[in-house]
Structure formats: C-alpha cells, structure tokens
C-alpha cells in the first residue's frame, strides 16, 4: 500500500519561504491565501534561547476531520492517502475549514475550498511537490512511508520526530524532524 508523507527537517529549515512562493506559482494560489507557510518558535530568555524553524502545510491526516465533515464527499482521500477537494462537489459550506485543527484550508475565489494537495498532479508524474523541489536547504523530503527505500522512511527511522496536535488523533502524515 502507498502512504505518502513529507518530512520537514527543523535543523535545516531556515524559514526562507521559497517553498511558500514556489507553491503559489505552481498551484496558482490566490492572493491573500497560502497553502503552506513558515513558522518560527522562540523559546527561552536572553541569552539562553532556542528557535524552532519549519514550514507547515496540510497534514494529509490518516483520520482527517475534514473528510468526515464534508456533506457531499468533496473532501476525500486520493492515491496514497493524499486528501484532496473535488471542486465540482464542493458547495462552499466551509464545514471542513471549521473542522481542521490546523487551519490549513482557505476559500478559493471561484467558490470552492482549497488547500495543499501534496502537488498530487506532480506526484502522479513521478515528481516531488513544488515545495520539496525548490527547497534550497533540502529540509523537505517526500515519499512513500511504506517503501523502505524512500527518504521519508529512512528519515523517520533515524531521526527524532513529532507531529502537530497529536491529541487530536488525526494521525498526520507531515512529520517534523527535531
């Protein structure tokens, strides 16, 4: 079985935002919305400080509350567990936006709800998502969790990692290497 996942190496990410802009270009993301964004988490007090740096996007949860909440099934799982919105079936009720614990969805001006799709159109052609492709620090890796040769599989075996809001039991597929 294929299970697509992405790892974000917090040690390498410098929050340069190349991924944010590459995604905007690739997916024609409307102005004011972002499919991915970067976060800096500052801990401690001067001079004992630490900074977490990462990019975030849709977590493509295995147990996605947005899929559960969608009345027409527009929000659904595609190959490899990628969560995608079918624009034709979407009625704009925004139940999925409300249901998402990570606030990754936005309303597209053309009347449907949109979000990161792990660049499924690229994945189907054997390419990595646009963010992974552009990342100058190689902080982003993408692949099949169930394939032992994939980078994500190996990263998760060898590195300590975490997910966001594990208490929501969404079982995200976006892992942060710490």
């Amino acid at each position: 079985m294929t299970r697509y996942a992405m790892t974000v190496d917090q040690k390498l990410c410098v929050t340069c935002n190349a991924c944010v802009i590459a995604c905007k270009n690739e997916n024609q993301v409307p102005e004011g919305a972002a499919r991915c964004w970067t976060v800096q988490v500052e801990k401690g007090s001067f001079p004992l400080l630490s900074l977490e740096t990462r990019s975030e996007r849709c977590n493509h949860c295995e147990n996605a509350p947005c899929v559960t909440a969608c009345p027409t099934g527009a929000s659904h799982y595609e190959d490899g567990g990628i969560v995608v919105v079918n624009p034709d079936k979407c009625v704009g009720c925004k139940a999925c936006i409300v249901a998402c614990p990570y606030e990754v969805r936005y309303m597209h001006p053309e009347g449907y709800v949109d979000k990161c799709t792990f660049c499924i159109h690229r994945v189907r052609e054997g390419l990595a998502p646009a963010c992974v492709t552009v990342c100058p620090t190689k902080a982003l890796k993408f692949g099949d969790l169930d394939d032992p040769r994939s980078e994500v599989h190996q990263e998760l075996q060898t590195r300590q990692h975490k997910v966001l809001k594990p208490e929501e039991d969404t079982r995200p597929r976006l892992f942060f290497l710490t």
């Binding site: 027409t72 079936k89 979407c90 009625v91 704009g92 009720c93």
Partner: peptide, 14 residues
C-alpha cells in the same frame, strides 16, 4: 453557500 443548488444535487447523489 457558494453553490446552494449543488448541495441539493450532491446531498442526494454523493
């Protein structure tokens, strides 16, 4: 809703 008529259609068919 953005597309109210779609809701009626897909609530039944999907």
């Amino acid at each position: 809703l953005e597309r109210p008529f779609r809701l009626m259609k897909y609530a039944i068919f999907s």
